[in-house]
Nucleic acid binder design. Sequence first.
DNA 1: TTATCTGCAAACGATTTGCGGCAGC
DNA 2: GCTGCCGCAAATCGTTTGCAGATAA
Lengths: 152, 152
Amino acid sequence: MAESNELIDKLREFGVRITPQRAIILEVIEDLTGHLTAEEIFAEVQKINAYISLATVYRTLDLLKSMGLISEANLGSATTYYAVRDHGTHHHAVCRVCHKTIELPHELFEPIADALRTKANFKADVNHLVVFGWCESCAPQTECGENHLRNN
Amino acid sequence: MAESNELIDKLREFGVRITPQRAIILEVIEDLTGHLTAEEIFAEVQKINAYISLATVYRTLDLLKSMGLISEANLGSATTYYAVRDHGTHHHAVCRVCHKTIELPHELFEPIADALRTKANFKADVNHLVVFGWCESCAPQTECGENHLRNN
DNA sequence: TTATCTGCAAACGATTTGCGGCAGC
DNA sequence: GCTGCCGCAAATCGTTTGCAGATAA
C-alpha cells in the first residue's frame, strides 16, 4: 500500500508510529469524498484488511482529530461524521425532519468567521459548519416549527 | 402546581394529556435559562417529585420537540442540549478542545438565514446555531488546528 | 370506559477502555 | 529492546423501548 500519502507525512511530523493499520485507515480517509461515520470508515478499511478492529479506527480518528487533520460534525443524529480538513470547505444545512443535508457555499460564512475572530477571539472551524432547520419539503406551513406532531 | 403556564396551554391545543409528570417537567423547562441536558432536567424534576422517571423526561422532551416548542442542539459532545424556543435567540461558538461555549449575537446570522431562505428554500432554525472552533486559550499557535497533540 | 401515559428494567448504538501480547523505531 | 500500538471483549454513556399497570379525559 502507498506508504507516502499526505496524511502519513503529517503523522511522521508528529512523531507517531506508522503502523500498517494506520496506513490503511489513512488511505481510506484520504480517498473519502463526503462525510463518513466511523462505522463506514471501518467497513471500507475491512475491505482492505479484515483484521483491523473498530477500536483502532476510533483511536486513529481520535489521533487525527487531535492533530487537526480531520474535523468532525454532529449532524443532528447520535452519530459523528468525519471529514478531511482540506478537502475543501463544506458547510451544511441539515433538515431536522428528514435529515437531508444541503451543501452551502463558503462565502456565506466568511463574515461570521471574521466577526468571531476579531470580536470574540475565537477561531471558527470554517471547514465544517452546520445549520439546522427545515428543508423545502419538510417545512411546516405555519410559523417555523409549530406543527410537527404527525411524525410520532 | 401552576397548571396554566404557556407550554401547558400549547399542549392542550395539541390535544395531548396534561399529566402531573408533564406539568412538572414543563414547569422546570419554562424556568430554565440556558441549555440543559435531559439529565439536568431530570435532576431538577426530581427535586419536585422523586418518582418521575428519566424515560418520561425523554418522552416529554420528544413530545415538545415534535411540537416545535423546544429546540435541541448537539454541542459537540455525545449529549443533546435542549432550550425553549422563544427564550430569545442564542447561538454558540463551541471550542473543540475545552468545550467552552460563547454566546453569539443574533445579527451575525441574519444574512445566512436570509440567503438560505431565498436561495435554497431552507428554513434555518435561527434559534439554535452552533459553530465549532477553538477558543482564545485553546487556539493552536500554528495554522488553525495543527498542533493539538498534547491532550492525549 | 378507554386510549394514552407512566415506571421499570432491559435493550440499544456509538464510543471508550483495560489488558496482555505484538511490532515499529 | 523499549514504548507505543493493537485486538479483543467488556464497560460506559446517553437514549429508546416493551410491557403491564395506572390514570386523564
